[in-house]
Design a protein around this nucleic acid. Sequence first.
DNA 1: AAGCTTGTTGGACAAATGTACAACAAGCGT
DNA 2: ACGCTTGTTGTACATTTGTCCAACAAGCTT
Lengths: 198, 198
Amino acid sequence: MNTIPAFTRAEPDARRASLIAAAAQVLARHGVAGTSVRAIAVQAGVSPGLVGHYFDGIDALIAETYAHVEAQVAAAIDAAVASAGPDPRARLDAFVTASFAPPVASPDLLATWIAFWSLVPSRPAIAGQHDEQYAQFRARVEGLLGDCGLARERQRLAAIAITALVDGLWLELCLSPHAFSAQEAGGIARANLDALLR
Amino acid sequence: MNTIPAFTRAEPDARRASLIAAAAQVLARHGVAGTSVRAIAVQAGVSPGLVGHYFDGIDALIAETYAHVEAQVAAAIDAAVASAGPDPRARLDAFVTASFAPPVASPDLLATWIAFWSLVPSRPAIAGQHDEQYAQFRARVEGLLGDCGLARERQRLAAIAITALVDGLWLELCLSPHAFSAQEAGGIARANLDALLR
DNA sequence: AAGCTTGTTGGACAAATGTACAACAAGCGT
DNA sequence: ACGCTTGTTGTACATTTGTCCAACAAGCTT
């Protein structure tokens, strides 16, 4: 007499969310090579066939997982900015500091980014998603820079520079955490902002 | 009467090099997902079994491919620096300009980088290789900065900053080439050097 | 020539992959 | 109670994956 309910119906949105969360965990734990439909299904406690029912192939699931993790990252950064108070420069500093602290700068997120990046060149739809999310991120930086009084015509390039610097430091911090510290990364980024806003 | 020689013996080093070149081409053309032992063997005009004879698994081949492409990139940058003449600042400018021009900034190289990065978290040996090559790259930047008169105690963090900025711009340039131009990337990097060396 | 070493082949092998699909179970409206 | 819709299961399927290995071919030594 098996009393384990092998069949449990969930709210569609909740099921989608749990599959996305499972995909993020598998990517973090087993890397890109260890991520498959079956591994995700096991992690979610669900039959493998269900993945195909909710997502149009595993690439689509990875793309949605990236979007979800990206949103979490953005939320964590926004929260740090919000708790920094009204001073524009303090908000900018909070932005970069949060970028190099958990849960944003975490090797666990790296595999999700890499899996997504690997799909960009061959999938036009995913390339479009990347462009969109990159533009959103840059727009937030532009806003923070504008609040600090940076002239409008300089905002675009300045935001590109800060975004690239933060991304480069973030990537290196995840790939080899011993080359430099999160504090050093934050110091570099803040010094860069000083120069940019002078 | 098939006159095609199905069996041609090659110098071991030449064969290794041709397999690495084939791996780089497959990565560039078919992306990470389309790269397999068989695809590489076909590209090299060689039997699949030969890959295992020269490399200790496909991960080792990818790691060596990365090292090879990295060396090519470093050579291209060094050539640009050398042809810039003796002025230290001109050499630094040549360094960043070359970083955003072909053949360094090319979407073809992206897949090789991504394939290598995906191996870093799970393979300690590959993580070590990454640390080493990253340190080499940074050391070159430190040298160029020192030639420009940057104080020794500031060289390390400055090199980390420039490396991260260039990497971030390079990555974004490969992922979405329409967000900004190579000229803009070069301008950003040179402006950053101005601020750093002031 | 004969034998030995070694690069090379081509296929075998088990394991893993993504997807498709028939069957089933649960909740809902009637 | 009944049927209908739909989330869910489990498996089957054809491919593809990385690795292994016995056989073979070329060159070198003797």
